[in-house]
Design a protein around this nucleic acid. Structure first.
Lengths: 144, 144
DNA sequence: CAATCTATCATGGAATAACATGGTATTCGA
DNA sequence: TCGAATACCATGTTATTCCATGATAGATTG
C-alpha cells in the first residue's frame, strides 16, 4: 500500500447520494499513507471544481505561511496560503472508503448526483460530469 | 487525536451566548495535544480580530523575545513579541469544549452574538461575521 | 474454455455517537 | 451573604458509524 508521496492518476465517476456521500476511488485511497485515512479538499480558486490532496500537502502549505508576519505586519492579508488554509477542509472517509462532500463545495462545483475524480499527480480534482466536459471542450478549442 | 503540530484549517461560525461562551470547533480541539485542553488568545495587533493558537506557539514567541532582549533594552514595547506575550491570555475550555471570550477581546473584534473561527495553519483567528466579510471584501479589492 | 466462485468495490439505509447550545447548580472571592 | 464566574447536566440536531445488498472483475476449477 501507499508509503511515500501519493500519486493520483486516471479518472473515475462515482455516484453522490442525497447526503452528499461519495466513494473515493479505491486507487486514490490505496495511494494514501496507511495511517491517514483522510483527504483535504477546497473549492478551487480558479475553476468550477474541488481540489483535493493528502494531509502532508496541506502541511506544506501551512509551513509556507508565516503566521508571525500575519500577526504583526499590517496590510498583508490575501495571502494565497491563508486563503487555501481557511477554505480547505480535512475529511476522513468511513470504513467503506466514502466521504461526505460539504454542501458549499458541491454548490461551487455544480455537483448534484455524480462526481468525477481526476488524478493530477500530487493532487486531484472533483468535477461534475457536465462541468468537466465543458472545461475539456474549452481546452481543446484553445489548442486550435 | 492530536499528536503532532496543530494544523487549523477551514472556517466555522458558532453562537456566542450572553455569558460570552462559544464552542471551539471540534476540528480545532482535536488538533490540539490531548493533554492541553486550552488555547491562547489576544486581540490582533493588525486587524479587528482575535488571534488564537496553542501553547507551543506561545513558547515560540517567548523564545523570539529572549533573543531580542539580548541585543536591546528590555521592556520596550517596540518588539511585537513583547506585545503579544503581554496581551495574550490562556483560556481552557470546559468539558463541552467551550471557552469564555474576555469582554475586552470581544469588544476589540466587534463580536456580539456570533463568532467566526478561521483556520490559518499554526494559528487561527476569531472574527465577527460582519467584520470578517468586510475584511475579505477589502482583500479582493486590493487585488485589482 | 466455460461456468462458477470469491474478493473487492460501490451503494443504500438505519442505528449510533458527536456536537453545539441552553439552562441549572456549585464554587469562589469580595 | 451575595454576586460573579465556573463547572455540571440536559436536549435537539446533525453528522458519523455500522450493517446489508448489488455489481464487477479476476481467479479457480471442472
Amino acid at each position: 500500500m501507499g508509503q511515500k508521496m501519493p500519486l493520483f492518476s486516471s479518472k473515475y465517476t462515482n455516484k453522490v447520494d442525497k447526503k452528499g456521500r461519495v466513494s473515493v476511488p479505491a486507487p486514490f485511497r490505496s495511494t494514501l499513507p496507511d495511517d491517514d485515512q483522510s483527504i483535504s479538499v477546497l473549492p478551487s480558486l480558479v475553476s468550477k471544481a474541488i481540489e483535493g490532496f493528502d494531509y502532508s500537502y496541506l502541511m506544506q502549505i501551512s509551513e509556507r505561511l508565516d503566521n508571525y508576519d500575519m500577526m504583526t505586519v499590517p496590510g498583508q492579508p490575501s495571502n494565497p496560503a491563508a486563503k487555501i488554509l481557511s477554505r480547505s477542509m480535512t475529511i476522513s472517509f468511513d470504513s467503506d472508503g466514502r466521504i461526505v462532500l460539504p454542501q458549499e463545495f458541491m454548490k461551487h462545483a455544480g455537483i448534484s448526483d455524480r462526481a468525477v475524480f481526476v488524478g493530477l499527480g500530487k493532487t486531484f480534482q472533483i468535477w461534475s460530469p457536465e462541468e468537466y466536459q465543458a472545461a475539456m471542450a474549452q481546452d481543446d478549442e484553445e489548442l486550435m
